[in-house]
Nucleic acid binder design. Structure first.
Lengths: 140, 140
DNA sequence: GTATTATTAGTAACAGTTACTATTACTAAT
DNA sequence: ATTAGTAATAGTAACTGTTACTAATAATAC
């Protein structure tokens, strides 16, 4: 039995680079920058390791309504704001214990981030009633 | 001068079908159901009209971290919840005037939707400082 | 009706992501 | 140290969802 995940130099480079930048890079962008030090790393390797790091909680996907998926090496609790002009994604750190009221929040963020905040998008996720009971069935 | 958008039967069918269902269908799903009444409609036509309807405010994109884009014929103010099991998207209608506190809200939604609510995702969008000033430059 | 032109069907191209395969290089046990 | 076993890799092909292209069609204005 020999099942430990290996910490290869590719994996290390990907994680380091992701932790270093604050730009929420795409897989392609990481690939380009890592290629400067490891010229024949493969794009597939970047994708595979990014997904692996996400599974292990060392990175997070940043999914905005855009073609390309982005990744974030900062897994601490924070929000994102995307510029509708250039597409870049910035971080927002707020104290989440306080109650949120939409109009207030948007004004507050405008001051905090210096963005012209157009709006927000709140989505929820979870298990629907059907999948919940299916899952319970499977456990028995 | 002859520039009015035409109300073709394809466009009408797409809008009608989208308004009729509550499933937030993908372009492919709409294509499949419309093909039953108009067998040689093209998938490109469905995409093109959906985007057009979105531009005109008669439909909305529903973008979840999933491969496929979804569309919603209900443009009234509401939230979405996606099942992490089967991927389906349900609607949530809440009174947005009240203050939102995350823990409360999630408990409240659990009761309201009968989902096992795992979490939420809040994203913001707007114009970053750079794009703001660039835009102002252009106006002069 | 006829002319004009937006829209269409059908298909090809495209972009981002994933899958495949032979090879490489860790790891652990001999 | 050698070997055996197997994650992980590079390179490439395949796949999927979306967009672009083009000649033909059909909605509208006159």
């Amino acid at each position: 039995m020999n099942r430990k995940p290996r910490f290869t130099k590719q994996r290390k480079l990907i994680l380091d680079e992701l932790k270093k930048v604050k730009t929420h890079p795409t897989a392609q962008e990481l690939y380009d920058s890592i290629r400067k030090v490891l010229p024949n790393i493969s794009l597939g390797t970047v994708y595979r390791n990014l997904e692996l790091l996400c599974q292990q909680g060392m990175a997070k996907r940043v999914e905005f309504p855009e073609a390309q998926r982005r990744y974030d090496g900062d897994v601490s609790r924070h929000y994102h704001i995307q510029c509708v002009g250039c597409g870049k994604v910035d971080d927002i750190y707020v104290n989440e214990t306080r109650a949120i009221r939409e109009d207030e929040l948007i004004r507050f963020l405008g001051i905090k981030t210096n963005y012209d905040v157009h709006g927000q998008k709140i989505d929820f996720f979870g298990l629907c009633p059907e999948c919940k009971s299916r899952k319970n069935q499977e456990k028995l």
